[in-house]
Design a protein around this nucleic acid. Structure first.
Lengths: 340, 340
DNA sequence: CTGAAAGCGCTTACAG
DNA sequence: CTGAAAGCGCTTACAG
């Protein structure tokens, strides 16, 4: 029943034309206050909701925002969705989720049809999709506005939001150094994620600024997964010649380090300090709880949605809009004074 | 450019009417093979993609499936999304995600407008939303087909998919008993989730069938969160009079148990066996890795999407379609022989 | 087996 | 400040 109410019913009930109802719905100017009130009363009385398909077909807005991602950590993508939806709802927009396989050959075929069938008003991209040239090119070709979260390359190609990954890693490293650690291991994140490089840089800069050298064998390659952290930690910790602290550049890998420490009977933090990055739910799921960097993921996604809803545009020669949010160092129990 | 191609362009290029193009697109019968081939060639040549809004407005399908959830574990909801999308893509459908706050007073206001604006072809519901009377009533009023995943009440109200939670909990309990455990603690899940009760029942039945009694103080209430598992475990494990095994009815709570065991210096599994349920990514993130039940979450969501796409309908007096998928006992290192 | 007409529920562009 | 007309790109219902 209520689903059959159209703009004509509202117009009839309030004694105006459908165009005037449309004006009220879209908050257009030039409507007499009295008329607007009558229309709004009719909308409320009839429980009228404009049909998104009709609006989308007739007008320029689809009321749909997309989120593209590829196999991220579940906690990360859930936070992104919740953050984006909170902002979208305020304006009556909905969220379409589109997981992509960015390592496949057919990325173009995954993206192009979806963009052509569904005229989304904007798309939010997370790593590593946000740095995928084929995806970006398809979006630009179809003229779909997009905002990237923490892109790693080609920063001035689009609007973006993020945080200062480099500085955050820098500060975490300084935290470890302040605890007396001199020999610190580092686990690099997935090479396809831009943030990996920034975090790595921040670590190296903090060490250098403190006059500490980093042995090449103290830096291990990871891929942001628990397993990769586990394997990197085995490599870093198995011999007696091991660092007194390991800084894994995300929490999942840090949990892998904790597991190895447990297995090797290295007490955390007495014998080994472990630090992570992200403050995912998992950080509180280990004992001792993880010292980490809180990344404001939901807020970043909300800011990305906000940009899209307000319209991302910039002048030729200018940089696209970008927004950097604050991070926070979360010191829990997994880091402590270095053993002397 | 390519976004401007319409059905008229395809019709012109293939020398037929738009109605015939429409027939080919919708795989309707009664099109000469030769004609169909010509149309399909034109579609391919022009990279034509039908506009979803237009199809939705003119016809009965919106090509949109919704997923409603409330604050679930991130791993769970991600699996649901991936499983549903895999099936939806095959038919050109897209997924809209709608988190709900099911404990708020305004559930009706969260659901009704969304249902009226976006004419979704179907909705997939996860716990606890799948048992929320207001949500179900709104769906039925708006005549939106829905499939529930693991509902706990009113089972014959709608189509559903799930697994045999009761049997799975039964088998896990038998596994512990087979290892020699006689005194087993149990942590119940969130009371709003139907599966909680079934898992609890399965535990009790297995104990009873083995002639074992369950002391009331061996059963603790949890809420499916890490923290609730942690607190329940403190209650269960703090005194010397403690069970030799704890079966937590999901993995997040089991991780809480592991953390408490760690803190109390109870070796797992030598001194204490711990079992979980779900096989979330977290199950492999602890050391020792968790013995648990693998719940085929993505497959359940895929089956739900499949039902929706094929059309869920049933005769009066018949039961709605339901599908039960297989679970699997995953025995890892967190369970072992009972200490004598 | 194929097509011409009408219409889905809105917004755009224009007129007054 | 308000409205009548046209049209967005499809599908439905009907005709042949």
């Amino acid at each position: 029943m209520s689903s059959k109410i159209t703009i004509h019913d509202v117009a009839r009930q309030s004694g105006v034309s459908i165009k005037t109802v449309s004006r009220v719905l879209n908050r257009e100017p030039n409507v007499k206050a009295d008329t607007r009130d009558r229309v709004q009363a009719a909308v409320a009385a009839l429980h009228y909701r404009p049909n998104v398909s009709a609006r989308s077909l007739a007008g320029s807005k689809a009321y749909l925002i997309g989120v593209f991602f590829d196999n991220p950590s579940p906690g990360y993508i859930t936070d992104v969705q919740l953050g984006a939806i909170a902002r979208c709802r305020e304006e009556g927009y909905h969220l379409i989720v589109e997981p992509l396989d960015s390592t496949a050959d057919d990325v173009e075929e995954q993206v192009a049809p979806m963009l052509a069938t569904l005229r989304m008003d904007g798309v939010i991209l997370t790593a590593p999709v946000c740095d995928h040239p084929v995806v970006l090119a398809a979006l630009e070709r179809e003229q779909v506005p997009y905002v990237r979260i923490s892109p790693g390359s080609d920063l001035d190609r689009s609007a973006r939001v993020g945080m200062d990954d480099r500085l955050a890693a820098y500060e975490m490293t300084r935290h470890l150094i302040a605890l007396g650690h001199r020999d610190i291991g580092f686990i690099v994140g997935h090479p396809d994620h831009g943030a990996s490089h920034l975090r790595h840089e921040g670590f190296l800069a903090a060490m250098a600024d403190s006059g500490l050298s980093v042995r090449p064998d103290r830096v291990a390659q990871g891929y942001f997964s628990f397993r990769s952290g586990f394997e990197a930690a085995e490599q870093l910790l198995t011999s007696d010649d091991r660092p007194t602290a390991v800084f894994a550049s995300n929490d999942d890998m840090a949990l892998g380090v904790m597991a190895v420490a447990n297995r090797l009977r290295l007490n955390v933090p007495e014998t080994l300090s472990v630090a992570g990055f992200d403050d995912t739910p998992g950080a509180k799921v280990v004992w001792p709880q993880l010292t980490t960097v809180r990344q404001p993921i939901a807020a970043m996604a909300g800011a990305a949605a906000d940009m899209l809803l307000k319209g991302v545009a910039w002048e030729d020669g200018e940089s696209p809009p970008s927004k950097l949010l604050d991070f926070e160092l979360i010191v829990r129990e997994s880091t402590g004074p270095a053993p002397q």
